[in-house]
């Protein structure tokens, strides 16, 4: 399966297992979603469980919160993460706070799916990575898969989870892993081991990272598309890096991170999102606090620049092989 199919399968299975799961969003119904993630679901599960919504993101999330309070388990889609901002109030002030402010009387067991990230010539409003806005807000979980296998297992876990969860889907790798070489032909998931996705139910626990490549020379913390870019760059540079795919940003798998950095003594953080106050800043602070005496070099952050996401200059902005490669040299300088 590619990642779209895996995500589709997760929703299909959850709708079969739990009559309270419903899917809603702009164009998700009859049409099956602009990325086809919900294709066939309405025909199979009916219009009252999979339906199109008006174009109002605050409405989509506000309505989902109300449905959650009733007892449903909504899986709303925000067409692009760049368009999640109108829903910010409902996500941050409502979904994330409902359990706390009502002492558990009401909860928001909603899973918000949204394609995110760049690398597709999406320009300013089809490329953003706003995860740092949400990891900053207490009461909400943030999940970002990097393979079809993980996407399905994590999405099933997110839907079953009783807390509000943001599920950001790196759209650059919907169809295949992306190594950052935009000028080379892209791969397809069918040739990747993680493209082998069981058709049935399984889940991957939230809050658990995955060591994608074990190594001794340094630790690379990444998620989403960047996992694949880092893997390619490391292979090319012939460096024995340990690459960790965080998979869940909140709650974070601190044990895996800490053990790795203490072993390698070096830590590089890679994300597409802009740098200042990005999630990398939190990771860097955590690693500094916990692994200070093990660090042999300053922590490196390779991130998007603090600019809006550009169109024609995309590959200068994107933390691709060039930028990661230079950062690798820098962090390994005295090794």
């Amino acid at each position: 399966m590619n990642m779209i199919q895996a995500i589709n399968s997760a929703m299909d299975i959850m709708m079969e297992r739990d009559p309270d799961v419903i899917v809603m969003g702009e164009d998700v119904g009859y049409f099956g979603g602009v990325f086809r993630a919900t294709a066939g679901l309405q025909a199979k599960h009916g219009k009252t469980r999979v339906f199109d919504t008006p174009i109002t993101e605050c409405g989509i999330i506000g309505v989902a919160v109300g449905m959650g309070a009733y007892g449903l388990r909504p899986v709303p889609e925000i067409q692009f993460a760049d368009y999640i901002y109108p829903a910010l109030d409902q996500l941050v002030s409502e979904a994330a706070r409902l359990r706390y402010r009502s002492a558990g009387e009401f909860t928001s067991p909603i899973t918000v799916r949204s394609p995110f990230g760049g690398g597709i010539f999406g320009g300013q409003t089809h490329s953003q990575s706003p995860e740092g806005l949400f990891t900053h807000m207490s009461g909400i979980k943030t999940v970002i898969p990097s393979t079809p296998y993980d996407a399905k297992g994590l999405l099933i876990a997110a839907i079953e989870d009783n807390d509000p969860t943001l599920f950001f889907e790196p759209k650059r790798i919907y169809n295949g892993p992306f190594d950052g070489y935009w000028d080379r032909p892209s791969q397809n998931w069918s040739k990747h081991p993680a493209g082998a996705v069981p058709t049935g139910y399984y889940k991957i626990e939230l809050g658990k990272a995955k060591i994608v490549r074990a190594g001794e020379a340094l630790t690379i913390l990444a998620y989403g598309t960047m996992v694949h870019v880092c893997t390619a760059v490391v292979a090319e540079a012939g460096i024995d890096a340990e690459i960790i795919d965080l998979r869940t940003l909140v709650p974070l798998d601190i044990e895996t991170i800490e053990a790795s950095v203490k072993k390698t003594g070096r830590c590089m953080i890679v994300h597409e999102a802009t740098r200042t106050s990005g999630f990398g800043a939190e990771l860097s602070a955590i690693v500094q606090e916990r692994c200070f005496y093990h660090l042999e070099a300053p922590i490196e952050r390779v991130t998007g620049f603090d600019t809006p996401y550009p169109h024609s200059l995309e590959w200068a902005y994107f933390p691709g092989p060039v930028r990661i490669g230079e950062a690798l040299k820098k962090i390994m300088k005295d090794a």
Binding site: G59, V63, V65, Y70, G71, Q90, S93, L98, R101, F106
Partner: peptide
Amino acid sequence: FSISGNLTTQYPQAVGWAMASAAK
């Protein structure tokens, strides 16, 4: 329903609750 300090957020929530009731 739990009152929020953020004005009018309860409006779409009420609609969602009502839609859920109808859907069920």
